[in-house]
Simulated scan of single mutants.
Amino acid sequence: MTTPPAPGSPYIEIDGRRASTADDLLVPTLYGGYAHFTAMQVRDGGVRGLRAHLARLDAASREVFGAGLDGELVRARVRHALDGARRYDAAVRVYVFRAPDAEAATLMVTVRPPAAMSPAPQALMSVPYERPFPHLKHLGGFAQTHYGRLAREAGFDDALLTGHGGVVTEGAITNIAFYDGASVVWPDAPSLHGVTMALLEARLPESGLPSVRGPVTLDGLRAYRSAFVTNSQGIAPVRRIDATEFAVDEELMKTVVSVYEGTPWEHV
């Protein structure tokens, strides 16, 4: 019988086998820096936007390693790891990397206790940083982590990444959207197309709330009434970016959260 991990500890499988020794982790340790991944929340064995997660892994594998990734294989690996961890409410990550002499990519699945974003309004500190290859969810996030720590030390909740001329791109670990009183506006700038963002973009118009892309700059923040951030852990309003204050629009947040929570769960 498989021994479950200690409470709070990650359960790790590599290519369908539990990683329990240093040798098991040798390949990801040596080559894991050149990797891509996706992060998802699992509830009762289901994932919102599962097909989008699988499509992300396949597209990134084609770009980075020159070969696609079978979605059914990924699902099987995730199911196996959930069974091994004896946990069907979980935070799951699927990492894809490949050693230089390997014929196929290696899949590492980590299973942790479930997580959810705090609904408390966030304060964000803008920082001058654009992720390299921002359309990929890749490893190597030193700058994001460091800027996030600096933001928290300065009394903010997290960092907001910006490009040349104060162009707003994305949060350190989130997408950000703004509301001008008529439409939800996502920054039209190089960034990761997050799964939660994609789900909202597709479904918000059905609720009568237009969702558009447009340029957003730090100098132009006062054109927006409110803002919110999204990632795999959920959605939260933004109360401040640097010195610019935003009202928390309860009706807007109610609509956005309702649309997201109405997204069907897809069984892994």
Rank of each mutant, 00 (worst) to 15 (best):
T263A: 14
A177Q: 12
M117Y: 09
R62H: 10
V238T: 01
A236L: 06
V92N: 02
P121G: 04
P114L: 09
S191T: 12
F246R: 00
E170A: 02
V111K: 02
D24P: 00
G194C: 03
Y129T: 00
A154E: 09
P119S: 07
F65R: 01
F246N: 00
R203G: 00
W186E: 05
P190M: 08
G220S: 06
V74T: 03
G166V: 07
A236S: 14
E245W: 04
D83F: 11
V74E: 05
V168W: 08
E201A: 15
R213H: 14
A90V: 05
A159I: 02
D83R: 14
A177V: 09
H80V: 01
F228A: 01
A55K: 14
D242F: 05
L161V: 03
H146M: 15
A227P: 00
Q144R: 14
A55R: 15
A151F: 05
E250D: 14
T2G: 03
A236P: 04
G262V: 03
T230C: 02
Y34R: 15
M125A: 11
G262K: 03
G68P: 01
L160F: 12
I14K: 04
L221V: 06
F178D: 00
S61W: 12
E201H: 14
I14M: 08
M197K: 13
E261L: 13
G140T: 07
L218R: 12
S118T: 11
T29K: 00
R75F: 09
M1R: 14
G71H: 10
P28W: 08
L54Y: 10
Q233G: 04
V167S: 12
Y260A: 02
L221R: 02
P187H: 08
D44S: 14
T263R: 06
D249W: 07
P7N: 04
L252Q: 03
G234I: 06
R17M: 10
F37C: 02
A90Q: 06
I235D: 00
H53C: 01
D24T: 01
